[in-house]
């Protein structure tokens, strides 16, 4: 078990996502620090990928900006280490499987351990395929996070069987991105998951406003916000840390209210 659990000890956890190295390595570092300063409990760093099939346009563009800025896996590791020098906040990588596979699954997880990355989310590695990497994760004490979708029902016991860290509960069908309405009956889904695991549940996909964050956190243990933060980077580039700080503070206070 990693120190992810500690983020869920007190209030509802606020998990914030950015694509690593977007718009540049330096700005990305500042953005992450600002998010931590304003109360994000867990940082998800997206490893940019050429073909992020589970992402909507906002994060697709972020990946492209990072790749165009020359961001490589090595640079993401550097960024992580820089953050680690100033903060103990839990860090989770979100990455498609190919960069991990290409680096060597075992080596990748060992690297995570070495630089104190607490967990990893691989959206294109469902329960059926996770044995490829799970033993390495268990060995290294790096959490392999499970995703549960609105279509998962029968599959939930199988998915959450080995869950550690937190369950990434996908709020809506489709890809990442901000949504005005979230139609899924989340309470039913969350209740079902809780029958099979004690691992904390965080809801992600589509959350944008403080009101949504508050509402969706009711039944869950935390919420995940990605696209809304990343769209501020798209809008303000290297000037985004201040705007992101303000946004993060507004979500945090909604969660605590």
């Amino acid at each position: 078990m990693s120190n992810i659990q500690t983020a869920f000890n007190n209030n509802k956890a606020f998990i914030g996502f950015v694509t690593g190295g977007d718009p540049s390595l330096e700005s990305s570092f500042e953005i992450i620090l600002k998010m931590i300063e304003k109360g994000v409990d867990i940082i998800e760093i997206g490893i940019p990928f050429s073909d992020p099939v589970a992402e909507g346009p906002i994060i697709q563009k972020a990946d492209l900006r990072a790749l165009n800025a020359g961001i490589t896996l090595t640079k993401i590791f550097e960024l992580t280490q820089k953050v680690r020098q100033v903060s103990n906040v839990p860090i989770v990588y979100l990455t498609y499987y190919n960069p991990v596979f290409c680096y060597g699954s075992q080596q990748f997880i060992e690297k995570c351990k070495e630089i104190h990355v607490d967990g990893i989310i691989i959206p294109d590695l469902p329960a059926e395929e996770r044995d490829e990497i799970l033993p390495y994760c268990k060995n290294a004490g790096v959490d392999l996070l499970c995703l549960v979708a609105p279509t998962s029902f029968d599959r939930i016991p199988k998915i959450v069987k080995d869950a550690t860290g937190y369950i990434y509960l996908v709020s809506s069908m489709g890809v990442t991105g901000v949504r005005i309405y979230i139609k899924t009956n989340l309470k039913k889904l969350i209740d079902e998951v809780r029958l099979h695991t004690n691992t904390p549940i965080a809801v992600g996909f589509g959350i944008n406003t403080p009101e949504q964050a508050k509402a969706l956190s009711q039944d869950a243990d935390g919420i995940i916000i990605g696209s809304a933060i990343v769209s501020l980077i798209e809008q303000f580039g290297e000037y985004s840390p201040a705007h992101i700080g303000e946004y993060v503070a507004s979500i945090k206070s909604a969660l605590n209210s």
Binding site: V53, P123, D124, P126, L147, V148, A149, T151, D154, V170
Partner: peptide
């Protein structure tokens, strides 16, 4: 190797 959303 596909997102959970499509596995079912």
């Amino acid at each position: 190797y596909i997102p959970e959303t499509l596995m079912s």
